[in-house]
Structure formats: C-alpha cells, structure tokens
Amino acid sequence: MSTAELIKIGISIVVFALCFAGNIHFKGLLKNIGDTDTKKLKSLKKRKTLCFVGVIISIWFAIGVFVTWFSGRKSGMHIEFSMFGERTGIEVLGMKLSETTVITMAIVLIVAVLCVVFRLFIFPKFKEEPEGLQNVLELCVEAVEDFCKKNVGEKAGVSLAPYMFSLAIYLIMCASTELLGLRAPTSDLVVTFSMGLITFILLNYFGFKKLGFAGRFKSMGGSMAAMRPIMIPLKIVSDIAVPISLACRLFGNMLGGMIVMELLKGALGGYAAGIPGIAGLYFNLFHPLIQAYIFITLSLTFIEEAMEGPEKQSKKAKKQSAKAEN
C-alpha cells in the first residue's frame, strides 16, 4: 500500500470512530431527555441520523480504498461493448458459440429442470382448493391466459397463452442474468431478432388460418377496392417491419441499460461498492420487466391485427346501418 492509500484509510477510520461515538452519545442523550422537550428532541434526532450517515460513508470509503488497492482498478471511462456477444472457446460443429448463446442454453436448461421438478414433485400434491404455491401458480397462469384472450380473442388466446407465458419467463430470466454480472442474452441482436421472427411466423400463421390466402390479402387492402393496389404493398412492408422493430426495441433497451451500468461501474472504479446494485434494480430489473410486458403486448396486438378480417368490419357496418335505420 502506498502512503496516499494509508492516509485515506486513516481518514476513514477517524471519521468512522467519531461518527460512531457521536451516534452512541446522542442515543444516550435521547434516552435521558424524555418526550417533554420536542424541539431539542428533533435536533438531537437529526444529529443522530447525521452520525449514522457518516458511519456508512466512512465504511463505504474504506471498502472502496481496499478494493481499489486489491484489484488495481482505477476509476475512469474505459468501457467496451459490441453489438453481438463475444465468442467463447466452446466449439460446436466448427463454429464458436457466442457468450449469449451459452447463457441462453443455461437459462433454458434451468427452466426445463424446474419444469420437470414441478411436474414430478409439486403437481401431484395439488388439491382442489388451492393454497400457498399453487395459488401463486394458478394466479400467474390465469392472468396470462386472460390477457391473451382479451387481446386476440377466445380461440387463439388459449393456444397462444403457453408461448407468451414461457416468453415472459425467458425474458425475466434473461434480465436477471445481468444482475450476476453476465451479459444479458437479450442485449444481443441475434437473440431478439429470432424472437421477433417467431412473432412474425405466428402472425402469418394465425392470419392465413383465420382468413385464408385470398381473404388475408383482401383484408390487407381495406374496404375500398380502388385503394387496394396501393394499400397491399404498404401493408406487406409494414408486416415485414414487425420483427425488425420488435427486435430493435428490445435490443436497444437492454443494451442501453447495460451501457449505463457499465458507465457507472467504470466511473466509480473500485468505489462501486453497493451503488451499482441499487441502480441495477431499476436498469436491470424494472426496465426489462416493462420491456418484456411491452414485447408480449405488442406481439399480441400484431397477431390480432393480422387476424382482423373483413367480416368483423362488415358486421360493425351492418350494426351501424341498422342503428341508423332505427
């Protein structure tokens, strides 16, 4: 340790001792004074909290000095990031797997093992009247199913709910890997784009299934026949843009959070004891949760839009005309 570090540690120890002694001193005074003198009581309480803050700051400073000395990490802005995950040493079929792929596989493995455990050990214990864990699980499943039904209708909602639920679990797991210091798989453009492609396939599948090949194109053109040659290419382009926009949205959000966190860590250097953990609750947990919700809602909305046929519109028009006649 150099002399500068020793001086820093000495300062923090002195501050710690002073504040600790002050804290105990004011505690003793508070006990003696009673409830009568409210003004004095308030000022004493204020001093006590000030001393407590001083204790915490001195401990944080000392930890920072120790970590900086131990790891040799200096504070400063040197961050590195890439659009795609870094390649690891693991090779499959002559291709090097990227870091995010390995994390994705680990997440899928964990979820699969959890599913098997739930199926074998927890589901047989379920009763007619739910309690405890069963309540929570039923609540989750029902909420997702209701949400899907509300957005895409009864029939497609039931068949889409399992996919959306697994997507939600996957996105939440991805977001929480970042709390462990790993790169979140969703901050890789490849992962988000593949999820967008799945939405695109589902959208076309449900659209063609509901309306048929000709009906889908008819519904794309809108109700006016003259506008169809212009509207159909526009609609096709906007359909193709769906996976790209979904992928870029999720990717940009996750990468933005990651860069902010990296900047914070880089700026604080060794003194980053506990602070990125608190900031990470917002940037790595709360924000991705909202993004997962938005991803699911948007894909459901796009699927619903693709399924919207001319029958629905004509029904509405009929109703309106009937009302007008009455």
Partner: peptide, 26 residues
C-alpha cells in the same frame, strides 16, 4: 395499459436512433 403501449411506441423511435448511433460509432 394504453399509456404504456403508446410510450413504448414513442420510445421506439429514440431506440432506433440509438441503435443507428451505435452502428455508426462502431
């Protein structure tokens, strides 16, 4: 819910710009 959706859509333009900026700076 409508506000969340709308905000996401409005935010997406900024995110596209962010992605484009990343590609340019890379």
């Amino acid at each position: 819910t409508i506000l969340l959706l709308g905000c996401a859509l409005a935010e997406s333009t900024a995110i596209y710009a962010f992605v484009v900026a990343l590609i340019l700076s890379g």
